[in-house]
Design a binder for these strands. Sequence first.
DNA 1: TAAAAATACTCCATAGGTATTTTAT
DNA 2: ATAAAATACCTATGGAGTATTTTTA
Lengths: 315, 315
Amino acid sequence: MKIPHFSLSELVYLVALDTYRHFGKAAEACHVTQPALSTQIKKLEDILGVRIFNRGTQPLEPTPIGKQIIEQARKALKEIYRIEELIVEEKRQHRGYLNVGIIPTLGPYLLPRILIPLKERYPELRLNIRELFTEQIIWHLKRDLLDVGILVTPLNDEELTSEPLFYEPILAYVHPEHPLAEQATVSLQDLKRSEMWLLTEGHCFRNQVINLCREDNSFIKGVYYESGSLEGVQKMVENYGGLTLLPALMAEGIAQEKQRYLKPITPETPLREVSLLFHPPVVKETKIAILKEYIQKNVPQSFLSPDIGAIVHWQ
Amino acid sequence: MKIPHFSLSELVYLVALDTYRHFGKAAEACHVTQPALSTQIKKLEDILGVRIFNRGTQPLEPTPIGKQIIEQARKALKEIYRIEELIVEEKRQHRGYLNVGIIPTLGPYLLPRILIPLKERYPELRLNIRELFTEQIIWHLKRDLLDVGILVTPLNDEELTSEPLFYEPILAYVHPEHPLAEQATVSLQDLKRSEMWLLTEGHCFRNQVINLCREDNSFIKGVYYESGSLEGVQKMVENYGGLTLLPALMAEGIAQEKQRYLKPITPETPLREVSLLFHPPVVKETKIAILKEYIQKNVPQSFLSPDIGAIVHWQ
DNA sequence: TAAAAATACTCCATAGGTATTTTAT
DNA sequence: ATAAAATACCTATGGAGTATTTTTA
């Protein structure tokens, strides 16, 4: 029954310093002054008997053992925070924040479906949503700046774990005068022969489109325009011709009269696997379970099984 | 970057109070006075806003939510202790204690083989060994009073995880004038027809012998004497006749001239699966890995594979 | 020469001690 | 009646503040 020679606040400061790599910023994030944080870090290093950060380098960097200590401190702190969360869960109030990161090709189409019913049932649960690219979601999760990410898997990262949410079909969207506009469906072969509007780099959906349309391992054919949003590529199709691929939830929002230019893809509907991503140990277990429940309840029920098509990877 | 409103010492006191269920004893284990521990527990309950222990009952008992909090506090504290252990591991000094629990039918025969080479290679590693029954090992592990247990599996306990170490053959030991003494081996059928000296209740090996010798699910035949130690049953065989079963490591220590009365069992050598048992998260990972290495190095190498016989369950 | 981090010094909140009372069996 | 836990009160450690110096890019 030994009490450690360091305190929780020291661990919090340590983790903050690793996150911000700057004494002043870390101190601000902890609501203390820079000298307070500096002395506590120094004291922690003295207690543990190891140097955790290499000083006098720009930017500040942890030592090898420091990296291990920081990682372990993050894990320990989350188990500590879980104690408080247990009590909130026990009281069934579901009060508090849930920090959610979501990719831009999903957020604006998925979240409006769930926010209102969720708010009605759990008025005390505050969702703190940030639209981020996959890479940023991973970065934020590993620093515990997010509680959960919503993005497209599979992904292989040792530190993170994921739970599938649903499987979203990918559709083709063609210009009215495009030769394919007459067909009820378009084939993968058609896609591989076509010019395709693409999203800019960073969007995982861009990579899925490329993976779908490239012939084996050869170069990408006839793909040479890029927009930063799905609405962007949609408008490019409408105004300049050609075609693009769109995920089903976004495509549902396209005006009624244009829906006929959305074509299912044959022979197998390409799917993107949308998942929740965490950085264990998970603190806000129940809040995340609620989020999952509401997403799965408010998405077309056919999306819940991957049997409706073939999952497209993107890495 | 929020600092919890409670401190590590409060969690240590909480866990100690759960372990001892007595303010005075818990305080003593924490090297503080009873009023200090009392006030800290009360403060923790105030901070968390829940009652953790039902007072005024004998013995002291945690509330339902209290049980969850205590379990989570144990987990969190172990992740905290792991920080200090990381540094000891980094320095490759392997200084410190490892609290080991081992069953009585293994301890005196297995440990002498490893203690000397282990001490030579890692003089700073202090093994703190306690001989305990399986049930006691589990009890102590769950309260983190032991770092690791050495016992016979399979076992099914949700909270604990195990790693097989080796598979120890079980042999028959017969009196020189027993009818089976003439045979080179004895069959399972022979055993089922024989009177058998047994260990007292609590020894898992007793249950394995019973499981081996009982016909299907019927009652146990001809088994009606009990001793508290393997040497006890050995002496009973030698002085009063009959036979018993002995685990191989213990049997190896029997005098040379009596070794001929040790008989392999046919058709399949019965084995006991000896494993390490933990209560995750594991704090002293490397120390346990060293222990495992030295056990496996100093046991007959044929024991390392289960292919030499058939594992006998005992539950 | 700024910006960043470390140091010096002061204050006060609180953990823990002793002494004592209250509460349960 | 006795053991156990809670309360009262006091002390001292150390965490955090302000002011300042030192260091590095």
